[in-house]
Amino acid sequence: MAQYFIDFIITSVLIVGITALMGVIANGIGERIFGGSKRKEHVNESKYIQSGWNLVGGKNKTIS
């Protein structure tokens, strides 16, 4: 009976893990193929909004 539960847990973890990875991979492929010129739209808008903000906290205050 214990072996059944171990197999059930391993199978459950694999199914959930593979499903999660498939979603991330599909999203990445979709952005690269169908993203076009608007692929970085949200990143660029966030950088534009945050430009001029004061850097706070931490020792290294360089922008990457």
Rank of each mutant, 00 (worst) to 15 (best):
V13P: 00
V56P: 00
N54A: 06
G57Q: 04
S46T: 07
H42F: 05
L14R: 07
K47R: 12
Q3F: 05
I18K: 11
K59A: 06
R32T: 01
L14I: 10
E31S: 05
I6P: 00
G30E: 00
E31G: 11
K59S: 03
G36N: 11
G23T: 02
G57T: 02
T62M: 10
S64Y: 12
N54C: 04
I10G: 02
I25M: 13
G35E: 09
I18S: 03
T19F: 14
G23N: 03
Q50H: 07
I33L: 15
F8T: 09
G58A: 12
V56K: 02
I9F: 12
S51R: 06
S37Q: 15
G58W: 00
N44Y: 07
G35M: 09
V43T: 12
K47P: 00
A20S: 11
L55N: 00
I9L: 14
G57A: 03
V24A: 09
S46N: 03
N44I: 09
G23E: 04
I29A: 15
H42G: 02
V16K: 09
H42Y: 12
T19L: 12
S64V: 02
H42V: 05
G23Q: 02
I9W: 10
R39S: 08
L55E: 05
G28Q: 02
K38M: 12
Y4Q: 06
V43R: 08
Q50D: 04
V24L: 10
G28A: 14
Q50A: 14
G57M: 13
W53P: 02
F8C: 06
K47M: 05
I15T: 15
E41C: 03
A20I: 07
I33Q: 11
